[in-house]
């Protein structure tokens, strides 16, 4: 019995410390968050408390790729280089899966907390990403509000009936199947994806002959970049204008990242 008292005191001390630490952790939301990926930039900007996000990637300010370029203009930008990010003294770094491996490893070696987020390609993954970033930034309430709004809007824009077969066609003859973000957008806009019929579930080459033979009702091509390239010249091929002369659409910045902005892309496909 005597021996138990100090023992139980010991446990009480440990439990008390643990409660203190976890209470402290719950309140210690990161104060200096740096995002180095176009997609995490957007979710972080939507969720951050004023002054919490201190830098976004350079792409976030590019109006061709970022639907939030005007908001991003208010933030200092980074180019995803280890040195500049370390000098910002962040307590949380958000990186995408395509971030350079050595950069992430270097930042971790320097003692920074780096969270690598996979690209969100389905509605479920987008919801999970919003919740996850909200938890990482200590902004659970903002994340819940954003999710509620997202769910409402999604049920509003999702097409109730099938509107035909659509084909996605990008530079170099690339297409996207059902397991991609573009495929998700197509499905919610009420289109069947021609790539799925041809067995392309992710992203792959679609020979132009097969595209023409599949006779899609709707053709969605990639946006063109400034300057000229032979890769994009395929989108001007006369055969393409012959198969879908009046029913075509061009993807834009709302199609790049798994964020609530895909709702705008889905709505843009509505007649």
């Amino acid at each position: 019995m005597w021996g138990f008292v100090p023992h139980s005191r010991h446990w009480i001390a440990i439990a008390a410390t643990w409660i203190m630490i976890s209470a402290f952790a719950a309140h210690a939301a990161p104060k200096r968050v740096v995002s180095m990926n176009l997609c995490t930039d957007q979710i972080a900007m939507m969720l951050a408390a004023p002054g919490q996000l201190i830098s976004v990637s350079d792409l976030a300010q590019d109006p061709r790729m970022s639907p939030m370029s005007s908001q991003a203009a208010a933030f200092p930008i980074n180019y995803g280089r280890a040195e500049e990010i370390y000098l910002l003294r962040p307590d949380l770094v958000l990186a995408g899966e395509f971030a350079s491996g050595p950069t992430v490893a270097m930042l971790r070696r320097l003692g920074l907390r780096v969270e690598v987020l996979p690209p969100a390609e389905t509605i479920e993954a987008i919801r999970h990403e919003i919740k996850h970033v909200g938890a990482l930034m200590g902004r659970e309430v903002a994340a819940r509000a954003l999710l509620d709004q997202f769910d409402q809007e999604l049920s509003r824009v999702t097409a109730s009936r099938t509107r035909g077969r659509a084909a996605l066609y990008y530079a170099n003859g690339i297409t996207s199947g059902g397991n991609t973000l573009a495929g998700t957008i197509l499905r919610h806009a009420g289109f069947d994806n021609v790539a799925d019929e041809l067995g392309i579930r992710r992203t792959g080459t679609l020979p132009m002959e097969l595209l023409v033979m599949s006779q899609p009702d709707y053709l969605i091509t990639g946006a063109k970049w400034p300057g000229q390239s032979r890769s994009e010249a395929i989108l001007d091929h006369p055969a393409l204008s012959r198969i879908a002369p009046n029913t075509s659409h061009v993807t834009d910045r709302d199609w790049i990242c798994g964020t609530p902005y895909i709702l705008r892309a889905i709505e843009g496909l509505n007649p």
Partner: peptide
């Protein structure tokens, strides 16, 4: 030097 992201890959072509 092209501003187009695809251009550099076309050296092979």
């Amino acid at each position: 030097l092209s501003p187009n992201p695809y251009a550099a890959n076309e050296i092979v072509f």
